[in-house]
Simulated assay, not measured.
Amino acid sequence: MALKGVKVMEFLGLAPGPFCGAILADFGASVTVISKIQSSSFDVMSNGKRNISLDLKSKEGTDIITRMCKTTDVLLDTFRPGVMEKLGLGPDILTKHNPRLIYARLSGYGQSGPYKDKAGHDINYVAMSGILSLLAKNKEPPTPPLNLLADFAGGSVLCSLGIILALFERTRSGKGQVIDSGMTDGLFYLSSWILRSQFLPIWAGEPGSNILDGGFAAYKTYKTKDGKFMAVGALEPKFYINFLKGLQLTDDEYPQYSDNDRNEKKFTEIFLQKSQNEWCQVFKNLDACVTPVLEMTNLETNEYYDAKKPMYRDSNNMIIPEPCPKLSRTPGTTMAKKSPTLQGLHTKEVLQELGYSTTEINNFINTGKVFSANKSNL
């Protein structure tokens, strides 16, 4: 696997951090999660990772972290700016022990600026990026998206990209570096095309009235007879002609860029005459950019997923996607196929690898400096 041999320390936080660690693990990295004793953080991305539970406010806890860093490639800091410095574990200190350490900092607003110490969630970061203002219609309040945009796209994915870039650069310089990955900044960067195309006519109207935001009859969703939906993306003339063909209409009757309200009304009326499956059959052999709006419960029944097999079901019958992108020689494989990791499950194992004696490890456990899910003494 592409990241085989890379050692990662992930400080347990909310979803963006664990998914960043999961991306690295899925492509071969060995990820050890550092959790606080009796941590209440909810993590569904722990599969395939090791977990060591420490009292991070104790000298013993920070000493263990420092020793781990000496042989670690990547540290993933998911706390607010300044927390690691207060613990004595900031990059200035840890990189002295390991100049090759890549210290990745994933936070809402980044490590600088007036918002750096503020709490926030995806809705706040999307709002601050400017994108939330575009997710509105008819001057109604903007609708917050699912927490994919800032948390995972601007956060997890771009942070993992930064880590890969730093690992690549280290092969030439031999040096690590600090990565400042702010979710707001990340989403702002992902929005480059939207921001740089604002002068184009496609953004001339109010949010919700433009070609790409639901205001164009040939680029939106339509309800079907059985209460499901079809997605239409017939932007180019050649696709629009085929789209009309599927509806048994002509371009002479319903020109693409004239009387948009009339077109939408007609398309709405026609889509209600057939079920989603019937419309899938209509457009199966028409290159019209028309697809069903699939629901999470029926993804596998669609021919796309049935053929590509990009997922599997876990023991709880939950859908687990396989890693993407696909690499021809060193493909990733989801660590979700392994059992979820319990807090402190690998505490003793990791401490042994670091050279701590049986007496030291048992003393750490008995004094509450570390937590081990395995209660038996070594």
Rank of each mutant, 00 (worst) to 15 (best):
N210Q: 12
N210P: 03
I211D: 08
I211N: 03
L212C: 10
L212G: 04
L212K: 01
L212T: 00
D213H: 01
G214I: 06
G214Y: 04
G215V: 01
G215D: 06
G215M: 11
F216K: 09
F216E: 11
F216T: 09
A217I: 11
A218H: 12
A218Q: 08
A218R: 13
Y219P: 05
Y219G: 07
Y219N: 13
K220H: 12
K220M: 13
K220F: 13
K220V: 02
K220I: 00
K220Y: 05
T221E: 11
Y222L: 05
K223G: 02
K223C: 11
T224S: 10
T224C: 14
T224L: 05
T224W: 12
T224M: 07
K225N: 09
K225M: 08
K225V: 05
K225W: 12
K225E: 14
D226I: 03
D226E: 03
D226V: 06
D226Q: 05
D226S: 01
D226A: 05
D226K: 02
G227P: 00
K228F: 01
K228D: 06
K228C: 01
K228R: 10
K228E: 11
K228Q: 10
M230G: 05
M230K: 08
M230D: 05
M230A: 06
M230W: 06
A231Y: 08
V232P: 04
V232K: 00
V232M: 02
V232E: 05
V232W: 02
G233D: 09
G233I: 09
G233T: 08
G233Q: 07
G233F: 12
A234L: 05
A234Q: 04
L235F: 11
L235E: 02
L235D: 00
E236G: 00
E236R: 02
E236V: 03
P237N: 09
K238W: 15
K238H: 15
K238Y: 15
Y240M: 11
Y240A: 05
Y240V: 07
Y240S: 08
I241R: 15
I241K: 15
N242P: 13
N242K: 14
F243Q: 03
F243V: 06
F243C: 03
F243M: 04
F243P: 02
F243W: 08
L244F: 10
L244R: 01
L244Q: 14
